[in-house]
Design a binder for these strands. Structure first.
Lengths: 182, 182
DNA sequence: GTCTATACTCAGATAGAC
DNA sequence: GTCTATCTGAGTATAGAC
């Protein structure tokens, strides 16, 4: 992979997360990287192909960071807080979740895109469910509770977008610590 | 208000909720209504003005329906289920929440838009908080729990988008019934 | 690898005829 | 109210020179 190629992907991801899916145009990417849009086509055969790569990279990088951050964290409660902190950090950097941005913009997306986006959410739910494995007294089956937790985190990040205060994110974080005898 | 004007607003809202914010262009609206895009400008002085009106109408209509649906519902638990059902119905109609679509597309929006969108979420949180007023044994202050509930509902609707199953919506709905001694 | 040039399509917006 | 015509700008994409 060339450096320019990686740079373009970095810029594209940032544009989408800070603005919208539509904001990552070949023209904008080229301008930000100092080349022409026609040159961007040398690196990516189409915009669809680029968008697909971005999700796959995001998926990989997200879980790499999550696992790294949880390396020394043993308690389920602390692991959930660590996950919530990743969402809070996104907000602090004025970034939405890439997959959530894709979900909101589906009509320009094909089946491949939808599939990888759902794969991200599914793995996130699985991670949360695994984290809850040793919890007792849960009001719901842990697979179901995991779906609620992921929805609440993604929803909080989206609803707090553009606001200074993290009112929903902090509420969700507080809620996570009350879930059970973790 | 002319009929064409109302028709254009109806079409625009549907386009945004079924597709994306960007899908509601003057050209598309005109085509769907059988007039030219230049004629749409007769009814709305700018796209920004149209978008602003749409949120205000959505806000009004959403709470009108919510209150109507809750007319004969007394128990807090049943009221929360009724709210969740409105989100499930949106999904069944392949619609996202208008305000959530706006939140995901903020970069094309101005301060006026952000303000009315946040007003919608704030009122929804207030409604949920009021509904929880008589609940006991909540793990969080009810204002905080209300934020989590709204985030979970909005997040569920978004993450389930494009999927046949309502896996997150149904999980969230089940969770709502477990909250406390409602 | 990057460029210019080009083709096509779409968007928002306005002027002026009817 | 709706039209045609037009302007400006942005987007994806390709061909071919360097």
């Amino acid at each position: 992979m060339s450096e320019m190629r990686d740079q373009l992907k970095t810029i594209a991801t940032e544009q989408i997360r800070k603005k919208t899916l539509a904001a990552a145009s070949f023209r904008e990417l080229g301008k930000a990287a100092g080349i022409k849009s026609s040159s961007v086509h040398y690196h990516f055969k189409s915009r669809d192909a680029l968008l697909l790569e971005l999700v796959k990279d995001y998926h990989r990088d997200f879980f790499a960071e999550l696992k790294q951050r949880c390396d020394e964290v043993s308690s389920p409660r602390q692991r959930l807080r660590t996950l919530a902190d990743m969402f809070c950090d996104s907000h602090a950097n004025n970034m939405q979740c890439l997959c959530q941005a894709y979900a909101a913009g589906v009509d320009g997306l094909n089946d491949d895109h939808r599939q990888v986006v759902q794969a991200f959410f599914a793995e996130l739910q699985q991670w949360v469910s695994d984290t809850l494995a040793n919890a007792r007294l849960l009001a719901l089956p842990r697979d179901e509770l995991a779906k609620v937790i992921v929805s609440a985190l993604e929803g909080s990040l989206l609803l707090d977008r553009g606001e200074d205060e993290q009112q929903r994110l902090q509420a969700t974080k507080a809620w996570l610590t009350t879930l059970s005898s973790l």
